[in-house]
Simulated assay, not measured.
Amino acid sequence: KVPRLFTAGIASFYEGYYANKGINIVKGTVASGFSTNSNGEVTEVKLKDGRTLEADIVIVGVGGRPIISLFKGQVEEEKGGLKTDAFFKTSVPDVYAIGDVATFPMKLYNDMRRVEHVDHARKSAEQAVKAIKAAEEGNSIPEYDYLPYFYSRAFDLSWQFYGDNVGETVMFGDNDPKSPKPKFGSYWIKEGKVVGAFVEGGTPEENQAIAKVARAQPSVESLDVLAKEGLSFATKI
């Protein structure tokens, strides 16, 4: 999610911040293999461009795809997941799918989506259990109405993102990696409306404010006005 979410402006802050911590980010190539010693312990990482990096430990973060092959030809699929309704019911009676294997109707965007995040995993599980319980009792519950949410915490940094990262972007705030307390953010604007919001270093109230903005999708006069107002645009919604 991070490469798709981070704009060039956001990425340059984190690259600068990590570089100031002594972390060397190698770009423009990928790992192609490893060298090991006689004990089978890794000693080097081989890069595709021919370089090698000495290594004591290697952490591989390559993402993953949900394994749905188990249900091939038995349950309806869509967009790489098991297709469900707004209660996480699949095409097979009494079979529910939750978390990142589920492709569900995202009410906010009138679109079928699959979301890979712990927040959605928990909330979709809750929705499915409530739906099953309600069905047993002959009752109904509201449809799932999820607002996409992603976050990360590292060192003394903490960012949150809500909504959809589509359209044009506007940056605001202090994104100098050398700042003692950097606080900056970005809005995503589609068809004159704010559809997504990101903030680094936000207070709990400011994080709630950008969540509110992403759900309300308010109209904006211009990108310049939005850049100037920054977080105050969100806090007054």
Rank of each mutant, 00 (worst) to 15 (best):
F71T: 13
Q74F: 10
Q74I: 05
E77Q: 13
E77R: 10
E77I: 00
K79H: 04
K79M: 09
G80Q: 03
G81P: 00
K83I: 00
K83R: 10
D85R: 02
A86D: 14
A86Y: 14
A86R: 11
A86M: 05
A86W: 15
A86K: 14
F87M: 08
T90Q: 08
T90Y: 07
T90R: 05
T90A: 06
V92C: 04
P93D: 02
D94F: 10
V95T: 09
Y96N: 05
D100P: 04
A102L: 04
T103D: 00
F104R: 12
P105Y: 00
P105L: 00
P105Q: 04
M106N: 15
M112V: 05
R114H: 02
V115H: 07
V115T: 03
V118S: 12
D119N: 15
D119A: 14
H120Q: 06
R122D: 06
K123R: 14
S124M: 03
A125C: 11
Q127G: 06
V129C: 08
A131K: 14
K133T: 12
E136I: 14
G138K: 13
G138N: 11
N139C: 08
I141H: 12
I141F: 12
P142D: 13
P142V: 00
E143V: 10
Y144K: 12
L147V: 14
P148Y: 14
Y149F: 13
Y151C: 11
S152E: 02
R153H: 14
F155M: 07
D156Q: 08
S158G: 15
S158D: 11
W159G: 05
Q160A: 14
F161S: 08
Y162N: 11
G163S: 09
N165L: 02
N165T: 07
V166K: 15
V166F: 12
V166C: 07
G167W: 15
E168N: 07
E168G: 01
T169Q: 06
T169P: 03
M171A: 09
M171E: 15
M171K: 12
G173H: 03
G173I: 06
D174W: 09
N175C: 15
N175V: 14
D176W: 11
D176Q: 11
P177R: 07
K178E: 11
P180V: 10
K181H: 11
K183Y: 07
Y187M: 02
Y187E: 04
G192T: 01
K193R: 12
K193D: 00
V194N: 07
A197S: 10
